[in-house]
Design a protein around this nucleic acid. Structure first.
Length: 271
DNA sequence: TGACCCCTGGCC
DNA sequence: GGCCAGGGGTCA
């Protein structure tokens, strides 16, 4: 369930698995993931192509095949790219790329919130969803200056502003909660009322939180395990830990709803 | 800005 | 059986 670190990891995995390899056959099921795209066209356009490059912008993947065919991908809530041997059945596989030599890369997505869309390679970056993104939180890390400009424009709570992909691209519910905790800033604070020292701490905290999560996702193996999956230990500082003691002060961590999503925080550390 | 929707599985 | 879930989009 991907935020920037998981998508970055997916990009690295794709490069390791597919870059320079010929897709003997591509296929996809008709339905939400492909939206209005015809699966027959998907198969026709991508079969026989070679993956040339994979880029990440925010939570989107931009794949380029043979310099001309582009594929825009978003993993949604439950999307994941996995490498399997030929003939293995992959549950919830919505699309697959059969590689020369027998392996298969599946776009697995139980909840079908993910997306795959063909577009001319040349115009991938101009697709509306990509053009609407703010600076990438990892490639163009936020600074005191960039945050004071982007957050200074909105009266929304800082939690919601940081979740807005047009403000900063790549952060989701977990990374925002973790970064605000690291910065000692309350998620309820009005974005335009943060003091310079708080913005500076927040810029650092965002980079640290992303680096922390990304470090746990490497190295690339045959399969990609997300940081938090059913049964896995929760590696985060406060996310998903409401009711447990704060790792810094021991106060009980809390959660509440903000913009329809759960926000985790420490009422004593975050002001 | 908030409500609701898209989907399915896992957990209590 | 009901609630929850890290994504985005639309509508009033």
């Amino acid at each position: 369930m991907p935020e920037l670190p998981e998508v970055e990891h997916a990009a690295r995995s794709l490069r390791a698995w597919m870059q320079g390899r010929c897709i003997v056959r591509a296929a996809a099921e008709r339905g939400r993931v492909l939206r209005d795209e015809d699966p027959r066209r998907f198969a026709r356009v991508l079969s026989g192509r070679t993956l040339e490059s994979v880029e990440r912008r925010g939570k989107y993947l931009l794949l380029i095949f043979d310099r001309e065919v582009g594929l825009l991908s978003h993993l949604g809530m439950t999307g994941k790219l996995v490498l399997r041997e030929a003939g293995e059945v992959e549950p919830y596989s919505r699309a697959r790329f059969e590689l020369q030599g027998g392996q298969v890369v599946h776009f697995r997505d139980p909840r079908k919130f993910g997306r795959l869309r063909l577009a001319p390679a040349r115009r991938l970056a101009q697709q509306p969803e990509i053009a609407a993104l703010g600076p990438d939180a990892w490639e163009e890390p936020p600074t005191l200056r960039s945050l004071s400009e982007s957050l200074g424009r909105t009266k929304r709570p800082v939690k919601l502003a940081l979740m807005d992909q047009s403000v900063i691209a790549g952060l989701g519910n977990i990374q925002v909660a973790e970064a605000l905790f690291r910065a000692h800033v309350s998620p309820r604070r009005r974005a335009d009322q943060l003091r310079p020292e708080e913005l500076g701490r927040l810029a650092t905290a965002i980079r640290e939180s992303l680096a922390f999560t990304l470090a746990r996702l490497t190295p690339v193996q045959g399969d990609v395990s997300y940081v938090e999956e059913p049964g896995a230990a929760n590696p985060f500082l406060i996310y998903g830990k409401a009711g447990e003691p704060c790792p810094l002060c021991g106060e009980k961590l809390r959660s509440f709803s903000q913009g329809g999503r759960t926000t985790h925080w420490c009422p004593r550390c975050q002001r």
